[in-house]
């Protein structure tokens, strides 16, 4: 059984038109499916506004899908103890007026775990140690704690209810470079020790590379390429994936020229292939036909009319 299974997810937001026009619909997520095997990490990458955060919200049941369904360990209903969230800004994710002890105790109290006072206090300390923090953080408030450490606290809070799956929505985006690595290592360590599965939402490619087993590249509400992370990162097939990865500076590699144009509006996506307006490989057919995700010879899925023609440079060798 897979840890997480999403089937044809859609999320549409209606924008009331104030001036007598028709209501407009934002297609934030427009037909997304994926499966995360147990103990594995799926990274969903893309530019901001592509809809990945919306997927995160739907996974943790903060938003209801307009269509489609989500199963966590085979169960469709809301089970707060099955799947938890770590979000981007730790200062905002914790109540600034409450102590860290309170933040960690609260999930236990809400779900009736460790009813005995002493046992609960012990468990709170245990959670703190789990993320590499000492007891002296218990009495402190978020204001006096550095970013990296505070993000660990949010991870500890997420783990308090003993979930099987963690949704990590830009977990390192607010952290400084030196601290990012620490958090990534912690996450890897926890995954191994506790047998967790991760859905990682990020725009930071390096982080995705370190953590992901599978990756899904998202553009304007849809996946354009999914598959084994290592393969996609080393040899991206879809033109958008290539552009994304080329923009990342790497050893011995200068960032390539950024993509032309802006991300089109999610209210009225372009006809045909959504990416065709910015795609360097676009042909006439791309404007007419919307490509579906098709399996490729090495097991990944790509949504491009010209997928077969365009082999990645690494593959032509």
């Amino acid at each position: 059984m897979s840890a997480v299974r999403a089937e044809d997810l859609r999320k549409h937001y209606r924008i009331r038109s104030g001036r007598g026009g028709e209501d407009r619909v934002v297609h934030a997520v427009d037909g997304v499916s994926f499966e995360v095997p147990e103990g594995r990490t799926l990274a969903i990458i893309g530019e901001s506004g592509c809809g990945k955060s919306t997927i995160a919200r739907m996974l943790v049941r903060l938003a209801e899908p307009t269509e489609g369904r989500i199963l966590v360990h085979g169960a469709e209903g809301v089970d707060r103890r099955a799947i938890q969230l770590v979000s981007q800004n730790p200062w905002s994710a914790l109540n600034r007026r409450k102590s860290i002890r309170h933040a960690l105790e609260q999930p236990l109290a809400v779900h009736g775990l460790y009813p005995d006072k002493a046992a609960r206090a012990a468990r709170v300390r245990e959670l703190l140690h789990l993320v590499g923090l000492t007891d002296e953080y218990l009495g402190r408030r978020p204001g006096g704690v550095s970013g990296g450490e505070l993000q660990r606290v949010t991870v500890a809070r997420a783990l308090a209810v003993e979930p099987r799956v963690l949704v990590l929505d830009e977990p390192t985006a607010s952290l400084d470079v030196s601290v990012k690595a620490l958090l990534v290592n912690l996450l890897l360590d926890l995954k191994r020790r506790l047998g967790l599965s991760y859905v990682l939402i990020t725009h930071e490619i390096d982080i995705a590379r370190h953590l992901a087993d599978e990756v899904a590249v998202m553009y304007l509400g849809r996946f354009v390429e999914t598959g084994d992370a290592e393969r996609i990162f080393s040899a991206p097939r879809h033109p958008y994936t290539r552009a994304l990865l080329a923009a990342v500076p790497g050893p011995g590699r200068e960032p390539a020229a950024p993509l032309q144009g802006e991300v089109p509006s999610a209210v009225a996506p372009p006809s045909g292939c959504r990416f065709h307006t910015r795609c360097p490989m676009a042909v006439d057919a791309c404007a007419r036909t919307e490509p579906a995700l098709e399996p490729d010879q090495d097991g990944r899925l790509v949504a491009c009319l010209r997928a077969d023609e365009l082999l990645s440079p690494a593959e032509t060798v």
Partner: peptide, 16 residues
């Protein structure tokens, strides 16, 4: 603030 949503995810009831 994010914690309002975060606590929903944790399972804290709305009134609380």
């Amino acid at each position: 603030e994010d914690y309002v949503d975060a606590l929903r995810v944790v399972g804290v009831p709305r009134w609380r």
